[in-house]
Design a protein around this nucleic acid. Structure first.
Lengths: 144, 144
DNA sequence: CGCTAAACTTGACTCGTTCCAGATTCGGTG
DNA sequence: CACCGAATCTGGAACGAGTCAAGTTTAGCG
């Protein structure tokens, strides 16, 4: 499931971005723990570097998202989460109870539902699918 | 496109909810202007009633959503929006630029993408699809 | 018609995130 | 290897959206 990704420093250089400690720390952390929110990334990266400011993390995440190195997802009722799987068209399952997120490969090939029946004249460029349900742990907890 | 809905008071009674001014005002406003956010609903309902507290609107919306009379949607980067189309399985197109929302009927029948390739053991009960793009107005504005 | 739980009011407050301004550090080109 | 501008820091204030808590009103049953 985890593909080999180029090391963070190389990713940054390829994207034409400066290679800095905070950026490497954030990218590394995100590759290790996908779907983390800003606060989680902050504390993990801070531990990794010794110190790191809140703004630095938000700045870095915005830059990385702008460069296409990370993707920002915002499930309803949850703070924004980030992931490094960007190239492939995949979707997410979100647990209604604990909010945990898992990746789901696209059900119907490449661009799945990108062609709705009627578009109202919109120029559509992305179809985002979120599956809602209960993760195994929460489902078990609910029964008992 | 707009189906005949029972009047708000009747909807409330049928759902076993008390019939109050704020609830009728919110439902009426929402039927007239789907995809409105809480703030818009608040000011419109306030105008309709003379006065209405912020909290009342959030309370009413939560109760109505809980009773299944309205549906809450939260496109990323936008405050929560509400609509009265609840029974049918339909999705939304959201404009990246201005945030306007439009309804889209489900492309592939009843429960469209409700069966992803791999569920990671999740008990999935809903598939939510959001199409991202540009509305006709914003697309035109971008070209010029 | 009167009671009571449900609904509403008011106002303080949380959370996640952004912005601001100036001081400082640091990556990478010349 | 020195410089320059981008990146980051400190820390603060501010934001929008929504919630909590405690007191007051009211719908609707009996």
């Amino acid at each position: 499931m985890e593909r080999d990704l180029p090391p963070p420093a190389e990713q940054l250089r390829t994207a034409g971005l400066r290679v800095t400690g905070p950026r490497i720390a954030v990218l590394t952390e995100l590759q290790a723990h996908p779907h983390a929110d800003a606060e989680t990334i902050l504390s993990a990266s801070r531990a990794r570097l010794g110190s790191l400011s809140t703004q630095a993390v938000y700045d870095v995440l915005r830059v990385l998202a702008g460069a296409g190195l990370v993707r920002r997802i915002e499930p309803a009722g949850s703070p924004a989460r980030f992931e490094t799987r960007v190239a492939d068209n995949h979707h997410h399952v979100v647990c209604r109870r604990c909010g945990v997120v898992a990746d789901v490969d696209c059900a119907t090939g490449e661009q799945p539902c990108l062609h709705p029946s009627e578009t109202h004249g919109f120029a559509i460029d992305e179809a985002e699918v979120v599956y809602w349900g209960l993760c195994p742990q929460c489902a078990a907890a609910q029964v008992s």
